[in-house]
């Protein structure tokens, strides 16, 4: 019984740690669309960082946008 529990715990730890080979449900040969630059959330890093900065200056919300600048000329 304790052996079974130990195995289950090891399996859980293994999965959480990513140390075991997991069969990917999207195969490497199916990833050509995912690799297309237009699938990126951040295709133009400099331009989008500037956009986040503009919104941070003009809006009360902040954070979870993926990048930003600080200081401003915003009065």
């Amino acid at each position: 019984m304790s052996d079974t529990v130990t195995k289950l715990l090891l399996a859980a730890l293994c999965a959480l740690g990513g140390g075991c080979a997991t069969e990917p449900w999207v195969k490497p040969y199916e990833r050509q669309h995912l690799a297309d630059p237009i699938m990126s959330f951040n295709r133009d890093p400099l331009s989008s960082a500037y956009g986040h900065h503009v919104y941070q200056v003009r809006e009360g919300a902040r954070g979870a946008e993926g990048g930003a600048g600080g200081g401003c000329g915003c009065n």
Partner: peptide
Amino acid sequence: AATRRAWAGLVLA
């Protein structure tokens, strides 16, 4: 400077 926003750096994006 009126912003008191999160400063994460441009390169974090």
